[in-house]
């Protein structure tokens, strides 16, 4: 009797409490998944999460080494950021640069993605798409450097302009703010084309046809049908560009020279030239906080768009 009761009890439990059953399955799932997941997450912990925590701790120290007797906890490094207007000015400058570069990438990249997704077909589209994103996977340092040959006095643009124009012009954009912008747009444009293309490609051509057959002009169709549907791609691309540009330091150094002092280059200096690591850590953490706040604020918009 007992032997018969147990299985029926068992099925009873499965039927009456599906929640508990799925909870047990989920627990079981974690137990099975853990050995496969552990190595990857252990590595990320060691190389990303612990370092980020260490950076927060370091930003609260008075001096370089935590083992030194004189070192104690302080908020002085954060106070430095708020008392010296230089840092806020540079952060603002970096944020503006991020906005400008992102905006230019949208203006250039969106039409390119549109042409790619809606005019080119088949193999030609695949080939050109590959050509657009290929530079992205080559060395960004080298790509930035290549602009120095174009923008400097006596460079290609200077030589070409003087060969065409009847009068002499001196064309030297090297070590200027526009040079930094050009280099950064060149570096990050493929991101924008990629994300816009992915969302544009997903738009059914029938929708565009329907709008047109109902009498919408090309521009109205673009504005009322295509643009809203492509928004997730534009926003994703913008986030992917804005974040690294705000923290850029190599591009401004190579193309901006002395005019290229930005928030990122000041952080770099704290670690490689001035050796004030606690201040550098505080400045890095402030940048991280600003970026996170911007992401959190835009997250609902992103989710709604997606």
């Amino acid at each position: 009797m007992a032997a018969g009761a147990i299985p029926s009890n068992d099925t009873d439990r499965k039927e009456t409490t599906p929640m508990a059953a799925s909870g047990a399955m989920k627990q079981n799932g974690l137990r099975k998944a853990l050995p496969l997941l552990l190595p990857a997450y252990a590595w990320l912990t060691l190389a990303i999460f612990l370092p980020l925590s260490a950076m927060v701790y370091f930003s609260l120290l008075t001096s370089m080494s935590p083992s030194e007797q004189s070192s104690s906890l302080t908020l002085a490094n954060y106070a430095t950021f708020f008392s010296d207007p230089l840092y806020a000015t540079l952060l603002l400058r970096s944020l503006k640069l991020g906005l400008l570069v992102t905006l230019i990438c949208v203006l250039i990249g969106f039409p390119a993605a549109y042409v790619l997704a809606k005019i080119f077909k088949g193999r030609a589209r695949e080939a050109i798409f590959l050509l657009v994103i290929l530079p992205f996977w080559s060395n960004s340092l080298v790509r930035v450097f290549s602009w120095s040959m174009v923008l400097r006095e006596g460079g290609i643009l200077d030589t070409a302009l003087n060969a065409i124009l009847p009068f002499h012009v001196t064309f030297d954009l090297m070590y200027s703010f526009p040079a930094v912008v050009i280099g950064l747009v060149h570096s990050y444009l493929p991101y924008m084309v990629l994300t816009c293309y992915l969302s544009l490609q997903a738009i059914d051509d029938a929708l565009i046809e329907a709008a047109r057959s109902l009498g919408a002009t090309r521009f109205t169709t673009l504005r009322r049908v295509v643009a809203p549907l492509a928004l997730p791609g534009v926003l994703a691309g913008s986030a992917l560009i804005f974040i690294p540009v705000v923290g850029s330091f190599m591009e401004p150094r190579i193309l901006g020279g002395r005019t290229g002092t930005l928030y990122g280059t000041v952080i770099e200096d704290q670690f490689t030239a001035v050796y004030n690591w606690p201040l550098g850590a505080a400045l890095s953490f402030i940048l991280l906080a600003v970026v996170l706040v911007i992401l959190l604020v835009s997250a609902p918009v992103l989710r709604k768009a997606a």
Binding site: M55, I267, A281, V291
Partner: peptide, 8 residues
């Protein structure tokens, strides 16, 4: 940003 990961 890599700058932050790198310095951390």
């Amino acid at each position: 940003p890599w700058l932050i990961s790198g310095t951390a």
